[in-house]
Design a protein around this nucleic acid. Structure first.
Lengths: 219, 219
DNA sequence: CGTGGGTTTGACTATACTCAACTACGGTGG
DNA sequence: CCACCGTAGTTGAGTATAGTCAAACCCACG
């Protein structure tokens, strides 16, 4: 759907399939290719010692990641679920290998657009973490996922492709806290968790007077 | 110093000066130009209601920001101090306006590199916020600033161009907490705060055995 | 039917936030 | 020159939120 896809398709590339957990590249490696997610989910992350992880971004179908011209990777990329990718070797960006003639202004715009999109994603992430309680953060995440999966934020059913551990590391909270936060949202009637780990977003929290605790209801 | 600067200089651009607090652009505006910081400091931020701010990035001399081909700005940009900028209208990216002939592979690489650098910055920010106490976060910030200002992380003297309020909003903590955290670092001998708001980084925290609590040293 | 990973629950603690007052500094004007 | 004000920053007290450690749980899989 986004414009830049058209230009990417003119570059040399091919499909690869990554099973869940597969490492696409690791922090510190030299960059030799970039990728577009076709199906599944990739997480960009940094691994601190002792299993402490920080997930910077989830890449869903259509997202381009790993696009940097030089230098070592600043994150690792791993498949958070079984994933198919299009792999674009960086060498394909050399002007003489373009299949459809030399790049024009629009093509450049498309590439920059692709490169920029990750910035937007990261910026959104920072905004989401920025302030707010754990509930706010989780709701923000669910909303984001709803938008990306094309389901209504009111009543839609989400199917998160990533584990709860992943979500916790993405939202910068302990997985226990995430679990409790889910429970609280269920209590408040904002979501319903299905047996198969799918999540139904509930329409309106049914305006109750719980908000005004001190209020006396007129009899 | 970075490669992409050379390619940027071939684009049409001019200098502008922004006094402290000046708004360069605002969230939601259409993008018509991008910028490079020459001197001073720019903050990229989102303004929530009620003065709640979240600063996504500080741009120091050499940094390029605002480079996106279309769509509304996803952040505001304001001068955090008196700042001089180079302004590049987006129209300059149309191939026919290049002053030194049509773009080549290297030029494209340079532009993508410029676009990518912000991603790296945001990624670093996420890593910094990720985990760690307020002390960790502040130390990470000071280290970053030291590197950007080219002073030694051991004994160097920093001159933060931004206010403490800005730093607090950048590190996602209340300004009171930031103040206390500064105090704690001073107490621990890690930094010294000069009268003119400059900060001296102290060499070594005097290696104590607190780190290896459980370790037995072979006699 | 047992094993194991992913997830949930419980009890306790610590860290950082809120509200609030107070201080230090710089500029402005009488 | 000094009094005044506004902004930026600090300090204090109390509280709440989320982290840690630990154990139970559940479901998929062999």
């Amino acid at each position: 759907m986004p414009d830049h896809q058209a230009y990417l398709n003119r570059l040399r590339h091919w499909r690869v399939v990554a099973p869940k957990g597969r490492v696409i590249y690791e922090e510190g490696e030299e960059s030799i290719a970039f990728y577009r997610v076709e199906t599944g989910c990739v997480r960009l992350q940094v691994n601190a010692d002792l299993g402490h992880r920080q997930i910077l971004a989830f890449c869903l179908p259509g997202d381009v990641f790993g696009l940097q011209m030089d230098g070592p990777r600043d994150t690792s990329a791993e498949a958070a679920a079984v994933t198919t990718l299009s792999r674009f070797p960086l060498s394909a960006l050399a002007a003489d290998t373009w299949e459809a003639g030399p790049p024009n202004g629009a093509a450049i715009a498309g590439l920059i657009s692709a490169a920029t999109r990750l910035s937007t994603t990261l910026a959104d992430h920072l905004k989401g973490l920025g302030h707010g309680s754990t509930e706010d953060r989780l709701l923000w995440f669910l909303e984001w996922l709803a938008e990306r999966q094309g389901v209504s934020p009111f009543g839609g059913v989400l199917q998160p492709p990533m584990s709860r551990r992943d979500i916790a590391d993405f939202l910068c909270m302990a997985q226990e806290t995430l679990s409790r936060t889910f429970a609280r949202l269920v209590e408040r009637g904002l979501i319903r968790v299905r047996s198969d780990r799918r999540i139904q977003l509930r329409p309106r929290p049914r305006p109750r007077e719980e908000a005004g605790e001190g209020l006396q209801r007129a009899a």
